[in-house]
Amino acid sequence: MPAAKVALSTASVYPESTAAAFEIASRLGFDGVEVMVWTDPVSQDVEALRRLADAYGVPILAVHAPCLLITQRVWSTDPWTKLQRARSAAERLGATTVVVHPPFRWQRAYARDFVSGIWRMAEETDVRFAVENMFPWRYRDREMMAYAPGWDPTDEDYRHFTIDLSHTATSRTDTLAMVDRMGDRLGHVHIADGQGSGKDEHLVPGRGDQPCAELLQQLSANRFGGHVVVEVNTRRAMSAAERETDLTEALEFTRRHLLRGESCDSSPGGRAARP
């Protein structure tokens, strides 16, 4: 087993429930889960999540704050209240990380104070607020900048980052160059894949064109101290068995390349070192 823990995002089992994600994570041998807080009432209920973690013996390693368009009314319509509740949930559940997206451009007051506000909240807790890289929205030949201050969090001064390899594919970003810019502030990884289309694909790692294997080996060689979370799209699976086949493949791919990295020397330049 690699030193870095490999968790299952509860979003990876959609349209199955949050509760189903805990059962699947336990049976397939994941080290924990990242809870995507969304419209499923269980994902919003700290006590229900605690009972699931205890029942299946699967710790909650991270909480993904409700930052999606479909979750704008989850845990309040005020974005700072959402983050405060995410921090409280993480503290009560023993999670080390809150994953947060940059604001939408139309959230003007929130966007204006986001960088300083994230720093302020981070200084009030041991929980990491890891800001995730996003992407421009595209339709045919048009591109919309939907996030502010921007979709690339390395343009700003944050204490911790989340790298998502489906998002680097969608934004057509050089993934390893972004990881270099994040440096020792890289605190969390969403492992997935993509082919650079206009869609956020979240393919099983190894099925797209992202440097998933290289990144995992690099992280492990540099003794990465965060968590690696499998966040893939299985909604097109024709059966529960097909979904679990995809998740098993993703887990095995991730662990295999983390283990390969442990046998390598640390790469020059301190890429993706321990946060």
Rank of each mutant, 00 (worst) to 15 (best):
G150W: 08
R105G: 14
R128F: 12
V131I: 08
D155K: 11
A148K: 10
V115S: 06
S116V: 05
M145V: 07
T154C: 11
T168R: 05
D152P: 12
E132C: 08
R108Q: 08
A111S: 11
R138I: 05
N133R: 06
A111H: 05
V115N: 05
D174W: 02
T97C: 04
Q107C: 00
P149N: 01
T97W: 03
Q107E: 13
Q107Y: 03
I163K: 04
R138A: 07
S116Y: 04
N133T: 10
P149M: 01
W137H: 13
Y139I: 15
P153Y: 08
S166E: 07
R128V: 04
P136Y: 00
G150T: 08
M134V: 09
H160E: 03
A122P: 02
F135P: 14
L165I: 09
V127F: 11
A130P: 11
D126P: 13
R138W: 00
G117P: 02
D164W: 04
A148P: 14
A111V: 10
H167I: 12
D174T: 02
E123N: 10
R112Y: 13
R142Q: 15
Y110Q: 00
R140P: 15
R138S: 12
G117W: 13
D113A: 09
R172N: 10
R142F: 10
R138H: 04
S116A: 14
M134A: 04
D141C: 07
F114Y: 14
L165M: 12
V99K: 01
E156A: 11
R172T: 09
T170M: 14
M134D: 09
A111C: 06
R142I: 11
D126W: 09
Y110C: 00
D174G: 04
R172S: 07
E132F: 06
F129Y: 12
P149Q: 02
W137C: 11
G117C: 05
R142A: 14
W151A: 10
D152N: 14
E143A: 07
D141M: 12
E124Y: 05
V100L: 02
M144C: 06
M145Q: 14
D126E: 13
E143I: 10
P149R: 00
A148I: 01
S166V: 05
F161I: 10
M134L: 15
